[in-house]
Design a protein around this nucleic acid. Structure first.
Length: 252
DNA sequence: CCCTGATTCGC
DNA sequence: GCGAATCAGG
């Protein structure tokens, strides 16, 4: 059964892709395989990204023009993408890591988000860093106005997140006690992700959700007032923060 | 081994 | 159009 590539998913694919996340990472967040991501990206036309290899080194190689020249042109300001989908997992409060949101933004502390030069190396939104306690957002009804009160409430369960599929991962620390001698791929991946816990906690003053295609005149960031502690406004936070699910099986 | 993206080709 | 299988470099 073929994946339904809706505008929604395609938009997210584009976004994540443009953010420089790896295909596998994008796939994880979209609940598809990296192959699906790559394949779709190809068909969508968006693709030029520093690839570790170039296939077809055999048939012919006129040895005239530098093949990497084209690549370099396409992606000049991309020295080291260094994605690192920083999922800020609070080292403390292990009991609260139930439904972890996955901020789709690299850790780079991009200061001036609004003045994004666009183009390939679009500015990376400020590091999201999920707060230890997923604070419940204000009534989704009114989003434009910032919450008058930062309310740092106690463990308030997952916000009203139900725009798309989102099966929470029942993390039961005690239950999953038995640990394999050989960590699985998923486990290691999760660990890797969890390992990143930058003590930084900086929230932009405007929603940095990208709108439009970078490089095009119309491209801009949302700019709305973000949720406290988050880089996105309530509206886009729903799109940006998707429930953590590593496994492609277990389709929501 | 692991990772990455690229391409092919049956569906 | 889709994506698993496969390839290929790091």
């Amino acid at each position: 059964m073929a994946m339904e590539w809706t505008e929604e998913t395609i938009a997210r694919l584009r976004d994540l892709w443009q953010q420089g996340l790896s295909t596998a990472e994008i796939g994880r967040q979209l609940s598809v395989t990296k192959n699906a991501v790559v394949g779709k990206a190809h068909r969508l036309g968006l693709k030029p990204r520093p690839s570790p290899i170039r296939r077809g080194t055999k048939a012919d190689k006129p040895a005239d023009k530098a093949p990497d020249a084209a690549v370099a042109t396409a992606v000049p300001p991309t020295p080291t993408p260094a994605p690192a989908p920083a999922v800020a997992v609070p080292s403390a409060d292990p009991a609260t890591i139930t439904a972890k949101a996955v901020p789709v933004a690299p850790p780079a502390p991009a200061v001036k988000v609004e003045e994004a030069p666009a183009v390939a190396s679009a500015v990376i939104p400020a590091a999201p860093v999920a707060p230890p306690q997923p604070q419940s957002p204000p009534p989704a009804a009114s989003v434009d106005v910032a919450a008058p009160k930062p309310v740092e409430q106690a463990p308030k369960p997952a916000p009203a997140t139900a725009p798309a599929v989102a099966a929470e991962e029942p993390v039961t620390p005690a239950a999953k006690a038995p640990r394999k001698a050989t960590p699985t791929r998923a486990e290691r991946a999760a660990a890797a992700r969890a390992a990143v816990a930058p003590p930084r906690r900086r929230s932009s003053q405007s929603c940095c959700w990208p709108l439009g295609d970078p490089g095009t005149p119309g491209f801009h960031f949302c700019g709305a007032t973000p949720l406290p502690g988050k880089p996105y406004c309530a509206e886009h936070a729903q799109l940006a923060y998707v429930k953590l699910r590593d496994r492609r099986d277990n389709v929501a």
